[in-house]
Nucleic acid binder design. Structure first.
Lengths: 248, 248
DNA sequence: CGTGCCTTTGAAGGTTGTCAACTGTAGTGG
DNA sequence: CCACTACAGTTGACAACCTTCAAAGGCACG
């Protein structure tokens, strides 16, 4: 299997200051006191990833954690042989790699950039120091992790009890916040951040089924799919799809 | 839908001392210092649940967390209408309800006893006090949560990419540690802690499919299903089932 | 012994996966 | 500028797995 390129360890041209970081507000680091903040600022490493570049591969050893400053990462998990699922998309302020970090184990998934993405790398000693000074950070991470667990369980339920059509509608609604825009005519346009292939992986199905399902949704006037643009005239129709769920 | 009985808030007849608790060793509380331990011991509430009794229902407010002292709980999550999945089984030393506790939200699942089960209830103020004195506990919980997240993701992968037959084999192997016994002839017997109904919920399928799949495994000499006893003569055959995975 | 629930079995149908071929697009090099 | 390639996406045919519905069997409990 062809492996995507590993990131080239480029340092970001512009120095990012933690103190000024907008992404920080949405993250567990939001309430950090100044001393710890400047420590982070001094010690962090900034990486810049181009679309398709891989931040880390599944199975590699973890030595810290990464926080997305800007852009989007995809977390992808591989099967014993090749089959993959997209675990989730990670955007500004969110961290990746902390699962492996807290378990002191290897990465259980691969992180790759979907677009040009800047990432801050925090090494283990720095983290231990920071957590030691701010135990409240651990509580914040626990909340994030608890949330993700709830999401993962919800996904399992959706995958096993709902049709692909219902899951696709659900995913579109989920993408609305970050990737949706409403034009003057009141039409919602969701710009998919991922390929059909990856969309299939996200929903736990195959690209062919995605194609058929998008076509069915178009036929029924629920949405129009044009490449990565999805036009939705009537949101209620999407909600109906989720609620009806279809057989299975 | 018929609701199972709520627990009757019986206090356990025997007082359980945290200091002597065996279950504690397998849990995040294993390394707690004496002072905190006796605080826990004084403040905790012990509950005794009979099989089928419900510890808490989905949607109720969380006010602390529960630790299983002995027995087994099932965590069950309900759909918007009735359909349910079994999220996981919880045994000695493990905690339930902490997800909702850390999020300060409502329970996202229902916890019910599969057998006679003793549970210690730790209220929020007690927990905050204990966590405040022992931030290391938070790290322990983070590890647990991280582990469960990894399991949940693995389950999603199994559910979407593997046949029911493969998933059943996988589940049997997973139940081996806690519910398996090897007799003098070298035959492994796994005693299922759950009904077929729940087994279906655990694998994300239907009872009918479970029945058909068990029959198929018997036909092929992989295992013998007699009520809740599963006899497995050759473990390698089970491993083969998992690896082959079958189409889908 | 009857009742009720869980489990099993059967038949039918639908959703989805698989395989193969085709289309469209983007990128490359002549 | 255009042919060529590569690859993602689409379409069609087919099979298989699984769900659904219905009914019968088994087991515990009153």
């Amino acid at each position: 299997m062809l492996q995507p390129p590993l990131h080239s360890n480029r340092w970001a041209a512009s120095t990012l200051r933690c103190q000024d970081c907008q992404a920080r507000c949405n993250s567990v680091w939001g309430q950090l006191e100044d001393a710890s903040l400047s420590r982070l600022d001094q010690q962090k490493t900034v990486l810049r990833l181009e679309p398709g570049e891989v931040l880390y591969r599944q199975g590699e050893a973890s030595g810290g954690l990464y926080v997305v400053h800007s852009g989007t990462l995809a977390l992808r998990k591989f099967d014993d042989l090749g089959q993959s699922v997209l675990l989730r998309l990670v955007t500004d302020g969110e961290a990746v790699g902390y699962r492996s970090f807290f378990e002191r184990g290897n990465y259980r998934a691969q992180a790759e950039a979907l677009e040009t993405t800047q990432v801050c790398y925090l090494k283990a000693p720095l983290l231990h120091e920071t957590f030691g000074r701010n135990p409240a950070l651990l509580l914040g991470m626990l909340q994030r992790l608890a949330n993700q667990l709830a999401e993962a369980e919800e996904r399992f339920l959706m995958a096993t009890r709902r049709s692909v059509r219902c899951r696709l509608a659900h995913a579109l609604l989920g993408l609305r916040d970050l990737h949706g825009e409403v034009d003057e005519a009141g039409v919602l346009t969701v710009t998919l951040p991922i390929s059909r292939q990856d969309l299939a992986d996200l929903l736990g199905t195959r690209p062919e089924t995605i194609a058929r399902t998008t076509k069915a949704l178009e036929r029924d006037g629920v949405a129009v799919f044009r490449g990565r643009k999805v036009l939705i005239a009537d949101l209620d129709l999407l909600f109906d799809e989720v609620e009806l769920g279809g057989p299975q």
